[in-house]
Amino acid sequence: MQNKPKYSFLKNWKYALDGLITAIKTESSFKLELFCAVFIIIGILYIDTSLTNKLILLITGILVLIVELINSAIENVVDLCTKEIHPLAKNAKDIGSTAVMFSIGLHIVCWVWILFN
């Protein structure tokens, strides 16, 4: 049995919006990062730098949100598979968190490089 619906552009958009709504409702880290993104975007609009630098900051900021969503998906799948504390389950969650940490670090480095260069 295949759990894959027939492709439909509009249905895929609905699935994506359902995922975003679920993330906003259930994932506190994503909510915090989305809240911070509002201020980051305002900051990007007001800093005196080139359009290229502003795009770098915007893209790395969006990257943080994307990686957080992927991490949340990994955590949900792990929780679905097992409620036990298993070394592989812990590794999967920890590695996903590391990816989030790296994306935030990249974003911070870009801000520092652009502001002080």
Rank of each mutant, 00 (worst) to 15 (best):
I74K: 09
K11W: 05
S50Q: 02
L34T: 15
Y15C: 06
V77N: 04
S103I: 01
I41S: 12
T52I: 08
T26C: 00
I56M: 11
E68Y: 00
A23C: 05
N12Q: 15
M101L: 10
M1R: 01
I114Q: 05
F30C: 07
K25N: 12
L65Y: 15
S29V: 14
I66F: 07
L69I: 00
I74T: 11
N91P: 00
I66H: 00
P87N: 12
G96E: 06
D18R: 06
K31A: 03
I74Q: 03
L10P: 00
E75C: 11
E75Y: 06
V77P: 00
Q2H: 04
T49I: 08
I70A: 08
I21T: 11
I108E: 03
T22W: 04
D79H: 15
T22E: 05
S29D: 15
T49M: 01
M101C: 02
I21G: 04
W111N: 06
F39D: 10
F35Y: 11
L17K: 09
I56L: 14
F35A: 10
I108S: 09
H86L: 14
C36K: 06
L80K: 11
V64S: 01
L63Y: 04
Q2N: 07
Y15M: 09
L20R: 02
N71T: 14
E33N: 10
V109K: 14
G61K: 07
M101Q: 10
F9W: 15
W113Q: 10
L45W: 10
S97C: 02
V38R: 04
I24Q: 03
A99H: 07
T26N: 07
Q2L: 11
L106F: 06
T26H: 08
W111M: 13
E68N: 15
G19Y: 10
V77E: 13
E27L: 07
K93H: 09
G105L: 15
E68R: 07
L55R: 07
V38G: 06
N3V: 04
A37L: 13
I108P: 05
A73F: 08
F35M: 07
W111P: 02
G19S: 04
W13M: 08
L32I: 04
K83M: 04
V78S: 03
W111S: 00
I70K: 08
S29G: 15
S8W: 02
K90Q: 13
K90H: 08
S28I: 12
D94H: 11
V38Y: 05
L57Y: 04
I42H: 01
K14G: 10
G43P: 01
G43N: 12
